[in-house]
């Protein structure tokens, strides 16, 4: 099976981003870039599938030059090859990303495209569904359990108040949630091997986006709350504060 894993390079979840003076740009100098956590688990799913049943795993990332580091990390985890769709900036509109990814996904003849459920820095969890529509393939996202039986996939996901099981045939697009399983750490041997694996770079021109970010701002800082040491009367006091000061009714 020929599997593609779409990886987005995102800011580390520990990042506390700063903004430029006029609130148009996130300052990226101090950001530690990582593979989006959900995508890492998607890659883990792909690697296990290929280890057991054969095939190949291609990691695919769209973005500026910096995203090659994420691709190298993907190769070090065990992917066979990497494709970098190089463009000037990281798009903030999933429509633009999806349309830029479509041609390569089609021409490469993948059986299965895996992505993360959502990119944790600024995503809206749209790409897997959009790719499904663009390619005319079945898709399901937020998946926490996936079984492959020949050309048949069974995927499970939680929904509000329940759980769904989706059955679909390959080729398909699946959006993976991190809860499906923690990714492996690259072994030293694989890190060395990754240096010799190919990263194919293809220049792409992004379409203009019709989603315009007009302003960025930091949310109001929380002021310090009232912290008390437990003792007689403290629980009663907090209960009263919740009611009278915070105005919560029950």
């Amino acid at each position: 099976m020929k599997i593609a894993v779409c990886i987005k390079q995102t800011a580390d979840t520990e990042t506390v981003p700063g903004l430029d003076a006029d609130g148009t740009r996130v300052l990226t100098d101090d950001i530690t870039w990582i593979i989006n956590p959900h995508d890492e688990s998607a890659l883990e799913v792909a690697l296990r599938q290929v280890e057991e049943y054969g095939g190949s795993v291609t990691v695919l990332a769209l973005g500026p030059q910096r995203v090659q580091k994420a691709l190298r990390e993907g190769l070090a985890m065990g992917a066979d090859r990497a494709i970098h769709l190089r463009c000037e900036r990281m798009p903030n509109d999933a429509r633009v990303t999806a349309r830029a990814l479509k041609p390569i996904l089609e021409s490469e003849g993948f059986d299965l495209v895996l992505a993360g459920q959502v990119s944790v820095d600024n995503g809206g969890g749209q790409l897997p569904q959009r790719l499904g529509v663009l390619l005319g393939w079945p898709s399901v996202s937020a998946v926490e359990g996936l079984e492959v039986d020949g050309r048949k996939l069974t995927a499970q996901r939680p929904v509000e108040g329940g759980r769904e099981q989706h059955e679909l045939n390959l080729p398909a697009v699946i959006g993976i949630n991190r809860r499906i399983g923690e990714p492996r750490y690259p072994s030293f041997r694989n890190i060395m091997k990754a240096k010799r694996k190919p990263v194919i770079a293809i220049e792409v021109t992004l379409e203009p986006s019709q989603l315009v970010c007009e302003q960025l701002r930091l949310p109001p800082q929380k002021t310090a709350g009232q912290i008390m040491t437990y003792g007689p009367g403290v629980a009663d006091r907090v209960a009263h504060l919740i009611r009278s000061e915070a105005g919560i009714v029950w």
Binding site: T15, L211, E214, R217, L218, P219
Partner: peptide, 10 residues
């Protein structure tokens, strides 16, 4: 954005 650490108006 960024897990709620930045708000963006679009």
């Amino acid at each position: 954005l960024y897990g709620g650490k930045v708000l963006s108006t679009v």
